[in-house]
């Protein structure tokens, strides 16, 4: 699986069953990364993508996405078992969090890329491979 996550400076993934933040430029970057492939995500996350095509809406994308598919989850605990590539977007800010990024055991960072956010000064994309 190729998993997209967003995190704050303290490795938080969500708070009170909600995303910590959002940025339109992250969404645009995700669409660029997946190209024409399908992206599995919840209806909650799909609301960020407007009229984008290739969205596969499912309430449990981590379980329902095919092995090699792209998947985006927010504001929930995640297991990185079965994740071959992790795309981790960092907001560069601190937010409250009650869901945290699990240890990236067995994964190696292979790329870091920075770009301006829509409402965040700088978004940092970190790519990890197992």
């Amino acid at each position: 699986m190729k998993l997209f996550l967003t995190a704050d400076d303290k490795n938080g993934l969500g708070f009170n069953r909600r995303r910590q933040s959002r940025d339109a430029n992250i969404i645009a970057d995700m669409l660029s990364v997946i190209g024409g492939e399908k992206l599995y995500l919840s209806a909650y996350s799909a609301s960020l993508f407007g009229e984008a095509e290739n969205l596969e809406i499912t309430e449990n994308p981590l379980q329902n996405a095919p092995k090699d598919a792209f998947c985006f989850v927010e504001a929930q605990n995640v297991s990185l078992d079965g994740v071959e590539i992790l795309y981790l977007y960092r907001f560069g800010r601190s937010y409250p969090s009650d869901v945290k990024l699990p240890p990236l055991t067995g994964m190696e960072k292979v790329q870091t890329r920075e770009f301006a956010g829509s409402s965040h000064d700088k978004i940092t994309l970190e790519v990890y491979r197992r």
Binding site: A24, F91, R93, S94, Y95, P96, S118, S119
Partner: peptide, 15 residues
Amino acid sequence: MIPFENMVADYVKET
């Protein structure tokens, strides 16, 4: 307090 303030500020700026 700051993380909560950040969350509100960034949400308003984005949306």
